[in-house]
Design a protein around this nucleic acid. Structure first.
Lengths: 235, 235
DNA sequence: TCAAAAGTGTTGCATGTACACCCATGA
DNA sequence: TCATGGGTGTACATGCAACACTTTTGA
């Protein structure tokens, strides 16, 4: 871990990011695994530098984890219950015997044992262009046990995602440059966890007026070749 | 001002509340006027005690200002630009000559001169049951010059209010116990700043299934007496 | 010519909007 | 009986859902 100077950061305030990706027809979430002997799973998070806006801080976290920029990122809720402390981490610190590790972590221990209020951000990234370890992506219905209230943060992020998916047309951020109508529908089905009628889905998406129809995609399959689409660039 | 112990509070984190009320057919906002010789207008705000959740802190602020409880209150956005400091207040403090006042304000000056990240809350209260000074209520289209980014916070709060008005049926919180359909329509028109068709408005409200029709209200006017309505209590 | 998947068309229902009409009230 | 404002009914447009049908593709 790089050296950490608490005075550079705003105390007792953190950011937790729910970074959504999409692969194998399932919505995935990026999870950090910390190994203190005991394994602990958390949302990627961080703190806010004194000279940084909260959006910049969230972007930094996203960028460190995925290498991705220019992607949808938005705050959705603040989590601030009065007992919001990281008891798991505190306990693990207290059981570390190695005086060496303990020393290097001393500052962090004090810092991390405070009560934190956390700003929840969620982001959508194309997994293919992400540099995160593929094993860090977990299907949203198969998340490991997360520390503190991180499971609740994921739940709230999913609600925000659903609310905004076609209103803000952010779903496209999860797909590669070109995609078929079926790809798009499977994405929607993964997000909403329910099936959509194929014909009506197509009409609705086309009526949004943001898709550009490209050439057909011949896969070699014995059926009609689907059109590829691209998200229209503003003219 | 009561004594203020900075160590009881979470540093660099504040709450600013946009408290909406409704009177004279106009949407109003509760504004604090601080008199340091120079007059300064701000949103009612405060800080979060170490042993308090953020919702409790917001409720405390609301209660102190209006005496109202059990009313709609919700966080809607965090304001966290990197230069979010209270330059006006800092400057005023620096020009105060009275060593007496300066002394009593010394701690506060250091505290208040920090960069703050602020959680925006908005609330809806029935002005008639509020104990706030009536002069503190300003029509939303005639707000005084507010410090910092408080004007922007009001703008964002109004967006959140419109998004939630009938989805969460929170509009009723602004009206007295019983009201006519016209009262309700005027409220909606004040919030959305546009007229609604009288007949369709009535049908839409009734179709929500949350209004209970009471007796007629005879005003002495030479026209059909309107029904009074009440927000249905859950059965 | 056949199965599979893509694309298009049609109909019905619900909801929202515009218009018209009737009703109650007190002067 | 009249003006005023309140309440209700009807017709049309729009959007969404369910159904049916046609087209394309490679085996």
């Amino acid at each position: 871990m790089i050296q950490f100077n608490p005075q550079d950061f705003i105390p007792q305030l953190s950011i937790d990011s729910v970074i959504f990706g999409y692969k194998q027809k399932k919505l995935h979430v990026l999870i950090s695994e910390l190994d203190f002997g005991k394994h602990v799973y958390t949302l990627p998070g961080g703190f806010i530098k004194q000279n940084q806006s909260i959006d910049e801080a969230a972007l930094t976290i996203l960028n460190e984890r995925t290498g991705v920029k220019d992607i949808f990122l938005e705050q959705f809720k603040v989590f601030g219950s009065s007992d919001r402390k990281n008891y798991e981490i505190s306990e693990i610190f207290s059981t570390i015997n190695s005086s060496e590790i303990a020393k290097s972590l001393a500052i962090n221990k004090v810092w991390l044992s405070q009560r934190f209020i956390s700003i929840g951000y969620y982001a959508l990234v194309d997994i293919n262009s992400s540099q995160a370890n593929p094993k860090s992506w977990f299907p949203i219905d198969k998340l490991p046990e997360l520390i503190m209230d991180h499971k609740e943060i994921v739940t709230e992020a999913l609600i925000a995602l659903r609310r905004n998916l076609d209103e803000k047309l952010i779903g496209f951020n999860l797909l590669p440059e070109t995609f078929t109508m079926r790809n798009l529908q499977e994405l929607y089905e993964a997000v909403y966890e329910k099936p959509f009628a194929r014909n009506n889905f197509q009409k609705k998406m086309l009526s949004l007026g943001v898709l550009e129809r490209l050439e057909k995609q011949y896969t070699g399959a014995a059926n009609k070749a689907p059109y590829l689409y691209r998200f229209k660039t503003e003219k």
